[in-house]
């Protein structure tokens, strides 16, 4: 029986500055089950990272406002917790891997110190025990433990990302959020890191949210997929629904058409026309209608509801 670990209901996040209000995430619903992995795919500005930061409550607090919604994690609403309680969960039950391994590590602390930091905060370990655990997680991510006294600048990009993953895994989290973990890496290194994430995830039974713009990465690592566009989830379902299903949101089709395909010998690509709308001036009705090849009158006037085909959700008037 699948057990729900995380449930997001009707989440709406805006960024408010003096000049404008940006609607970054608009009333999204998401479910994540224990031991499964969910890929969130979308282009720049789709709201993927904002969703992740809302879960772990790291939104920039001066400008970001959560207008509505709840995020239920292990039966408690994270949005209602005090900062003190949240701090106990962050890094312990929920941890995050960031995109840029070059800038997410502290350059003046050794790798050992940085991994030990989370353990000291969350675990009731003695000195020896911490040292032992640091060695364990380093081994887990494939770094020889005699390198634990080195500083981040002595590591290459791929190795730094492994350190980031080691920090995230140190406390055995229930939920791991990986925000574009391989985007800054070369393909061969990306393949190594993805292999490792996939293997660790299935071995440790950690649930994972993987944020990426690369459908290829999702196909390799995720059970479920949600496609985001302009702050909304336009399509979600199992990986099979998304990659092999018959029905698709036009945006998903456009995304697939944009990827250069290695196996089919075709010269021209079929990209989506136009560009992402400014998030401060979102179009009326369906957010995708100005770029959609199937745009109808109703799309301009009304925002579509999500329709479910056996758990495969599509938010488009074509299917209503």
């Amino acid at each position: 029986m699948r057990e729900k670990l995380l449930e997001i209901r009707d989440l709406k996040v805006i960024y408010k500055t003096d000049e404008e209000t940006v609607e970054a995430v608009n009333n999204i619903d998401l479910d994540l089950y224990k031991g499964e992995s969910l890929g969130i795919v979308g282009e720049t500005g789709a709201g993927k990272t904002t969703t992740a930061l809302s879960i772990i409550r790291l939104l920039p607090y001066r400008v970001a406002k959560i207008l509505s919604g709840e995020i239920i994690f292990n039966e408690q609403n994270l949005l209602e917790l005090s900062e003190k309680d949240m701090r106990k969960i962050r890094g312990n039950n929920i941890s995050m891997i960031f995109q840029d391994p070059m800038s997410s590590l502290n350059p003046v602390l050794t790798v050992e110190d940085q991994i030990a930091e989370v353990l000291r905060l969350h675990m009731d370990y003695g000195k020896e025990m911490i040292k032992k655990r640091v060695k364990e997680v380093l081994q887990l991510v494939g770094i020889p433990h005699d390198r634990m006294f080195e500083y981040p600048h002595q590591f290459s990009g791929g190795m730094k990302q492994r350190v980031g993953i080691a920090i995230a895994l140190a406390c055995d989290p229930d939920l791991l959020i990986a925000d574009e973990p391989t985007t800054a890496l070369d393909v061969t290194i990306q393949a190594q890191v993805l292999n490792m994430i996939d293997e660790l995830q299935s071995r440790l039974k950690t649930s994972m949210i993987l944020i990426t713009h690369d459908l290829g990465v999702v196909a390799q690592t995720c059970d479920n997929v949600a496609i985001m566009y302009a702050g909304e989830i336009v399509e979600s379902g199992t990986a099979k629904d998304i990659f092999e299903g018959e029905r698709h949101h036009p945006y998903t089709e456009g995304l697939f058409g944009s990827i250069p395909n290695l196996d089919i010998d075709e010269k021209r690509l079929n990209p989506i026309q136009g560009v992402m709308p400014e998030p401060s001036m979102l179009p009326s009705g369906c957010r995708f209608h100005p770029r959609c090849p199937h745009c109808m009158d109703i799309c301009i006037a009304e925002s579509p509801q999500s329709k479910s085909f056996d758990g495969h959700h599509i938010k488009c008037h074509l299917f209503l």
């Binding site: 061969t188 393949a191 690369d214 196909a219």
Partner: peptide, 16 residues
């Protein structure tokens, strides 16, 4: 090493 956007490749040891 290129992750392909098709299913069924998962879990296989890739030629890295």
């Amino acid at each position: 090493s290129i992750p392909k956007p098709i299913l069924g490749e998962r879990g296989k040891i890739r030629n890295t």
